[in-house]
Design a protein around this nucleic acid. Structure first.
Lengths: 208, 208
DNA sequence: GTCTATAACAGGATAGAC
DNA sequence: GTCTATCCTGTTATAGAC
C-alpha cells in the first residue's frame, strides 16, 4: 500500500513545493524555516533536503517559478495588436484577477529582488521582454502624438497602472491596521477594484 | 578624554539607532544581524544589548519610529482646510519629497506589518487617525455630489494616489532588473514623478 | 560605558536505520 | 522514499574584566 513509486515522488515533491510557496511567500527567504515548510507539507524536515538539497535551492525553485508567473501576467497583454488604452485595461483586468489567487506574490517578488539585487537569476530576463516593453513605450508615444491619449510620459503611465494594481494587494495589511478594515470589507474593495482603476485611467487618458 | 558622560550615552545610542535603521530597513527583522548593526555603528555587539536589551526591543524601537514618520507624512495633509484635489496634490508632493530621503521606508513598513500583523503595536493607531481618514472620505463624497470631482469611490481614489506614490519607491529594484534602468535614469524618473502623478490625477478627476 | 570571552540556542544539513 | 537522531555553524544573549 505504501510502496513508493514514481507517483508518490511526484505527489510528495508537489506537496513540498506547495508548502514552500506558502511559507516563503509569507515569510521571505530569511524569515522562512525549513521546519515550518516540513510541517506545512506534512513531511519530515530531512525530506526537504532529499528532494531539494538545500534551503537555498528550494527557494530558487519557488522564486523562479513565481517570477515567471508574474511575467506571464504581463506578457499576455503586451503583444496583442490593440491600442494602449485597451492594453492597459486588459492588463488591469488580468492582473487583478490573477493576483486574487496569489495575493502574496507581488510583495514577495519585490522584496526578494530588493534584498538581493545581485543574485537575481539572469535566466529570468530573456532579451525579448525588454524589447516587448520598449515596443509598448513606442506605441504609447505614437498614440500621444496622434492625439489619441493625453500626453503622459509612457514610463510614468505604465508605472501608474502598475502601482494602482499592485498596491491593491500589497496594502491589505496596512488597510486592516490603519483603517480597521475587516476581511469582508476588503473583499468588497477587491470586487470594485478593477472597475475603479479602469475608469480612473480611462478618465485620465482622455485628451483635453 | 574618554570619560563617559551623558553626552556620550546620547551619541552612542543615537549611532546605534541610526545603524539599526539602516540594517533593518534593508534586511527586515528576520534578515538583520546584530553583528551587522554593531559594525555599522562602529561599536561592539554587546553594547547593543546594553542599550536595548534584545534584538526584538531594538527592532520595535525602529519600527515604531518609522511608522510614526510615515504617519506624519499623511497627517500633514489631511487636516488642512482645502479641497480634495489640493489635498491629494499636497500629499503627492510631500510624500515624494519625504521618501526621497527614506526610500526604503514604505517597503519596510508594509513588509513587517505583513509578516507579523498580530504583533502590531496598538499604541500606533490612535483613534483620531481613523477619524481623520474618515473625514477625508466624507469630504470626497461631498465634493463628488457637488460635481466638483469625477465620481470615484473615495477609498479607491485614495488607494490610487497612494499606490502611484508608494510604488515609485517600492518598484525601483524591479525597474532596474526588468527595464535595465540605471541609477541616473532612475533619478530622472524621480524628478519627473511628482508632476506626472499630479497631472494624471488632475486629469482623471475632471468632471465630465 | 565599553570591551572580550563564552554560554545558550536555533536552524540548516547529514548519517544511517527502516 | 521516509524517518529519527545528531552534527555543526551562525546568531542572540550574558558574564565579567577594565
Amino acid at each position: 500500500m505504501d510502496k513508493p513509486n514514481s507517483q508518490d515522488r511526484v505527489d510528495t515533491e508537489a506537496r513540498i513545493l506547495e508548502a514552500a510557496r506558502l511559507v516563503f511567500f509569507k515569510q521571505g527567504m530569511a524569515g522562512a524555516r525549513m521546519q515550518d515548510i516540513a510541517n506545512q507539507a506534512g513531511v519530515n524536515k530531512a525530506l526537504l533536503h532529499y528532494y531539494f538539497r538545500s534551503k537555498d535551492k528550494l527557494f530558487q525553485t519557488i522564486f523562479i517559478q513565481a517570477f515567471q508567473t508574474m511575467l506571464a501576467s504581463f506578457k499576455e497583454i503586451i503583444v496583442s495588436p490593440v491600442g494602449i488604452r485597451e492594453k492597459l485595461e486588459a492588463f488591469i483586468h488580468i492582473y487583478i484577477s490573477n493576483m486574487r489567487q496569489n495575493p502574496y506574490l507581488p510583495l514577495f517578488i519585490i522584496n526578494e529582488i530588493n534584498k538581493n539585487p545581485d543574485s537575481f537569476p539572469k535566466q529570468l530576463i530573456p532579451q525579448h521582454n525588454q524589447v516587448d516593453l520598449r515596443q509598448l513605450f513606442v506605441q504609447a508615444q505614437k498614440e500621444i502624438e496622434e492625439g489619441k491619449i493625453a500626453p503622459f510620459k509612457p514610463l510614468h503611465l505604465i508605472m501608474n497602472v502598475l502601482g494602482m494594481s499592485i498596491f491593491t494587494f500589497i496594502a491589505k495589511p496596512m488597510m486592516v491596521q490603519m483603517l480597521g478594515i475587516n476581511e469582508t470589507q476588503y473583499e468588497t474593495f477587491l470586487n470594485e477594484r478593477e472597475e475603479q482603476i479602469i475608469s480612473f485611467v480611462r478618465s485620465a487618458l482622455n485628451p483635453s
